[in-house]
């Protein structure tokens, strides 16, 4: 009986470790490959422990990139960063303003604005690529940072989250600020926004990851190597024949592409989880 309950208590740990192993193994393979020579990887199977080319491969990836690509991971990382920051910061600012208007003001077009924003809530760019591409090309925004960033600011997730939060702010606070003679914008700047710190942090984590991980849109509109993001670079490096692929460089770049968003989720886990589950409530 005692033995039995011991096993039962151990089972959750066994399952969880199994799951963790399944999640971590692919990354481990990538790491091993990123420390080996091209020849070692091509003569499959490669050894399953790290090699001695760590510094060499990461150096090559960061400073030169694969030979068939012509862009270094360093430059591409910069582009990914600009895109991720542009999308997250842009979205937060625009959404704070819109949510403020929708929650705290009664104006004639409120319903219309509300619905036209919310219809985009889950609309991925994947379903409207060609027409959006045409708009961006008509606006001469191909191969540019605004072209990479602005269409991605559309979706309404952030407006949604901030609206929910604003509605839960005690109405006495806004009332009091009015009685004290503060302008609506003063209330917004010095009371409401500081109160919204936590949802803003959560949104930042979510949108940064969303921006950093964008794939289809940059694939469409960046034809100049100078504007490649990391993910586009990886795709281009992999599109040759198997023998020409410099797997060790590709794998180093894959890890470099994973580290920033994963680091952000792990370090800001609490805000992130709260922000995610708040959109559902």
């Amino acid at each position: 009986m005692i033995e039995h309950s011991k096993i039962r208590r151990a089972m959750p740990h066994v399952y969880l470790w199994l799951a963790i192993a399944l999640l971590v193994f692919p990354i481990y393979f990538v790491f091993v490959a990123s420390t080996r020579t091209s020849a070692e990887i091509l003569s499959a199977p490669m050894p399953l422990y790290p090699g001695d080319r760590f510094f060499q491969n990461y150096g090559d990836a960061l400073l030169q990139g694969a030979k068939n690509l012509g862009a270094s991971a360093f430059v591409m990382m910069g582009n990914s960063l600009v895109m991720a920051l542009g999308i997250s910061v842009g979205k937060i600012v625009v959404s704070l303003l819109a949510a403020f208007a929708i929650v705290f003001f009664d104006f004639r077009l409120r319903k219309l604005c509300f619905w036209s924003i919310f219809i985009t809530l889950m609309l991925p760019v994947e379903v409207r690529i060609m027409p959006t591409y045409k708009v961006i090309s008509d606006l001469h925004m191909l191969n540019s940072y605004p072209g990479l960033i602005m269409p991605m600011i559309v979706s309404a997730t952030a407006v949604f989250l901030f609206r929910q939060f604003f509605m839960s702010v005690p109405r006495e606070i806004a009332e009091a600020s009015q009685i004290d003679g503060a302008h609506a914008m003063q209330f917004f700047r010095s009371i409401l926004v500081p109160m919204t710190r936590t949802p803003v942090a959560a949104m930042f984590v979510i949108q940064f990851i969303y921006g950093w991980n964008q794939y289809l849109w940059p694939l469409l509109i960046t034809t100049k190597v100078r504007y490649y993001t990391l993910l586009i670079g990886i795709n281009r490096m992999l599109s040759g024949a198997d023998v020409q692929i410099e797997w060790q460089i590709v794998m180093a770049t894959v890890l470099l592409a994973m580290i920033p968003p994963v680091a952000i989720v792990v370090t800001m886990q609490k805000q992130f989880v709260a922000g995610m589950t708040d959109t559902e409530k």
Partner: peptide, 19 residues
Amino acid sequence: MLIWPYAVATMVAGVLWLF
């Protein structure tokens, strides 16, 4: 340990399994 894959790009998930 179970949450971090959320931050991995869908495209990178494809590359991991492809490799």
